[in-house]
Design a protein around this nucleic acid. Structure first.
Length: 777
DNA sequence: GGGGGAAGGACCA
DNA sequence: TTCCTGGTCCTTCCCCC
């Protein structure tokens, strides 16, 4: 019985989920009781153990609920389910495909084998790769003691005091993996790598070609490799490159000698021979052995590769009866996808083998979800995927870190930012942007929490990620306040990747411009006074992009404000002014309250913060027009950006357009629903205004301070003409008139404008052309 | 009631 | 003294249309 199985002895303090999982090659016939005793004694009382106990209880409750449900199933329900199962079984049977030859190749104890190859002293010693906290893999000597992957090193040491623990060296494993993959590619150029040491191949096409190959193409040399010496290829003998790690070398057939006297091996044309050749070549190339399974589908190939591990292979013939026979007595736990919880749940129903699974399918159809019982049905029939899909799109990307207890806010925010930085780099490498940012936290009691936020548009930069992650972290900190958040792990994940269009190289973000005026930098800057900021606190490094409305509102430099309030930095003594990060003006005060009030005005309610914190402008490809002074309009709720070309997704921005104007020498067009294209061939001064939700509407309330830059009185933001009126109603009518009829029509009535009261048509356009696209809630 | 987001968990290497 | 990391998929709950 593997991994505790159906054990219900947790009442005696035995935690089955923590027991040895000996479902691994090289771990048969171990003294499980003795090993489990040591594992339990090492773990008992620890926070980890307590958490595992809790999880075990949850699984037990799930089983109880399931059994209760089972008790209420009627004969009628069962026979109905049976009919459904039978119908589906016959459908699946009709579609059974036995034509493909699928191979699953798995390197034997990969990391451990690489380390042993490079340090032969380890050969006869029990060894594992990893650390005292966690082991990645162990060699077969260590497995005899119950030491296996996913076991903490300190427990492994108790099981096997002589265990040698070697630290991981992923660069090395990646290099070896690349060599192995070169061999795979010769048999299936579209092979599917599952990890550094494992892959699926469809060798059907290779076998077809192979049948016509002359013997020379199926002949491979022993212990030699080709080296390129100045363009001349020469075969050299390599010392010590024999099957060093495991017995049962694939070279079981007699060796021959080639014309040059080197030992060679000739391989046949069938599937077994092709796979034996592949393993032979891997071994000659890397001195490492691999095991393989050959079967008509991926699910079976995976099981088969484990059958003769290490350094062996197994072929399941491609006929229905062979598959059914093979599946019959196979323990469910051997199937990839059935772990300790599913095994335990099935065990509670008396199901331990795949044949049981088939027999109880009607019951399973009533107790499990459709996805689950369909999966079970496929397994019980020996069905699996026959098509190796390589280019499956990535769904998410994340990074996380485990550390010693961390309770200090500063440290937590700083780590959060570091993670965002790392993730942003990774995203950039694959040119990915995602809409959902998830923060993962594990506290010192091993309780895991994930908190996600989905943005209206895809993000990728450190600032954008941190803006969200920081908020999520802050919320969690507030939730446990006044207790500190005692963490042992933090992670950041991005998912809901944008479509191919959005995956193009990132456009310059407007966020990057919302930094200190003096710095031209694209990196994060400190919000500071004019004089060099000597503040050493980590939180002053929080960029403007991380600012949210709630942060902005935090006027007091309190503990929380220090991590999020944008204005928390104390001005340096001797400084008599501070630079507003919104309008970039000097504010003649050192009073934070006054300074904050100024910023509030600039931010115009929640708008700016909301816009920025959600990073909605990134995909717009706009930059803040800070040079012309028009930014002061932000005090009225207008944000001005200068651009020559911009595609603006209205749904992304989350705002509705209320007004568009068409200038004589530019074009504002709609090319998809909710998407505007703003471009200008002749006029470099195209401007896009984003009017914040909730903010004052500039068309109706142009405030005096915002008029300074556009002349006296009320200036129409559409035609740029100064209107000879102070009456807002009249002014509004004028603006209405300027709205492009056709565009409004296309907008489908998003704006309700009364055009029946138009006064005169707008005057002919004069002066520099500033075109505006206005959005509002 | 269905779709979609959020949260949590199972499972894998 | 000490129990990882990075990924996918599934389930459940809840909200909204």
């Amino acid at each position: 019985m593997a991994t505790g199985g159906t054990s219900s002895s947790s009442g005696e303090g035995f935690l089955s989920r923590m027991a040895l999982n000996d479902n691994k090659a090289g771990m048969e016939g171990l003294n499980r009781d003795k090993i489990n005793k040591i594992i339990m004694e090492s773990s008992k009382g620890s926070r980890f153990y307590e958490n595992e106990l809790k999880k075990e209880q949850q699984v037990n409750q799930r089983i109880e609920r399931m059994m209760l449900q089972k008790a209420h199933i009627t004969e009628q329900q069962l026979s109905k389910a049976q009919a459904q199962v039978e119908k589906m079984t016959s459908d699946l049977e009709r579609g059974r495909d036995l034509s493909r030859v699928i191979v699953h190749v798995d390197m034997d104890a990969f990391y451990a084998a690489v380390e042993t190859r490079d340090c032969p002293d380890l050969m006869d010693k029990p060894m594992a790769v990893g650390s005292m906290s966690m082991l990645s893999t162990s060699n077969y000597h260590a497995r005899k003691f119950g030491v296996r992957a996913a076991m903490p090193g300190f427990i492994a040491k108790k099981l096997c005091p002589n265990l040698v623990i070697v630290p991981t060296n992923f660069d090395k494993y990646r290099a070896v993996s690349a060599e192995v993959r070169e061999v795979f590619a010769d048999y299936d150029p579209h092979f599917l790598p599952m990890s550094l040491d494992e892959a699926y191949l469809d060798i059907s096409d290779h076998l077809e070609q192979r049948r016509g190959w002359p013997e020379a193409l199926r002949t491979h040399q022993f212990n030699s490799k080709i080296e390129d010496h100045g363009g001349l290829q020469e075969t050299v003998e390599v010392e010590g490159l024999s099957p060093v790690l495991f017995e049962n070398s694939p070279s079981s057939s007699p060796c021959l000698q080639d014309a040059a006297g080197g030992e060679v091996e000739v391989f046949g044309t069938c599937a077994e021979e092709a796979v034996r050749e592949m393993r032979f070549r891997i071994e000659q190339k890397t001195s490492l052995t691999a095991s393989a399974g050959i079967a008509p589908n991926m699910m079976l190939a995976k099981v088969c590769s484990d059958k003769n591990k290490p350094n062996g292979q197994y072929r399941l013939p491609s006929n229905r009866q062979a598959v059914i026979d093979f599946i019959q007595d196979l323990p469910v736990r051997k199937i990839s996808g059935i772990g300790k919880v599913t095994e335990k749940m099935l065990g509670a129903l008396g199901i331990t083998s795949c044949s049981h699974l088939g027999q109880e399918m009607a019951l399973l159809a009533l107790l499990f979800s459709e996805t689950s019982w369909h999966h079970f049905l496929h397994i019980s029939m020996g069905l699996g995927s026959t098509h190796i899909e390589r280019d499956g799109e990535r769904k998410s990307m994340s990074t996380e870190r485990t550390f010693g207890e961390m309770g200090a806010l500063e440290e937590q925010f700083s780590l959060c930012k570091e993670l965002c930085q790392d993730l942003a780099q990774d995203l950039q490498k694959e040119a990915l942007k995602g809409k959902t940012v998830t923060l993962k936290l594990k506290n010192v009691n091993f309780e895991v929490k994930t908190r996600a936020w989905t943005l209206p548009c895809a993000v990728a930069t450190t600032e954008e990620l941190f803006a969200v992650a920081k908020d999520l972290l802050k919320t969690e900190i507030d939730n446990v306040s006044p207790q500190p958040l005692r963490l042992r792990l933090m992670g950041v994940r991005v998912s809901s990747f944008a479509s191919a269009d959005d995956k193009k190289p990132l456009q310059k973000s407007i966020v990057g411009f919302l930094h200190k005026k003096q710095t031209d930098s694209s990196s994060t800057s400190q919000i500071s006074s004019h004089k060099p900021n000597t503040n050493t606190s980590a939180e002053t490094d929080i960029s403007m992009s991380a600012l949210t409305a709630s942060d902005k509102m935090t006027h007091e430099p309190s503990a929380h404000a220090s991590t999020s309030s944008y204005c928390s930095t104390e001005p340096e003594s001797g400084t008599d002014s501070l630079t507003c990060p919104v309008c970039f003006r000097e504010v003649n005060t050192t009073e934070l309250t006054v300074f904050n009030r100024h910023i509030d005005q600039c931010l115009s309610g929640v708008t700016m913060g909301k816009l920025l914190s959600r990073c909605v402008l990134d995909s717009v490809g706009l930059r803040l027009d800070s040079s012309a002074g028009d930014h002061t309009e932000s005090t009225t709720g207008l944000l001005l950006y200068e651009t020559s070309t911009a595609n603006i997704s209205l749904s992304t921005v989350g705002l509705n357009p209320v007004c568009l104007n068409t200038c004589p020498n530019g074009d504002v067009s709609i090319h998809r629903a909710n998407t505007l294209k703003v471009s200008s061939q002749s006029d470099p001064h195209v401007r896009v205004c984003l009017l914040s939700p909730g903010g004052p509407r500039p068309m109706t309330t142009p405030k005096p301070e915002s008029r300074d830059h556009r002349g006296p009185a009320l200036t129409c933001p559409v035609c740029q003409e100064t209107q000879d009126t102070n009456d807002l109603t009249l002014f509004n009518r004028h603006v209405d008139l300027c709205l492009n009829q056709e565009v409004l029509h296309e907008l489908g009535g998003l704006a309700s404008v009364d055009r029946t009261t138009h006064t005169a048509p707008p005057a002919a356009h004069k002066g520099p052309c500033f075109r505006y696209v206005l959005f509002t809630e």
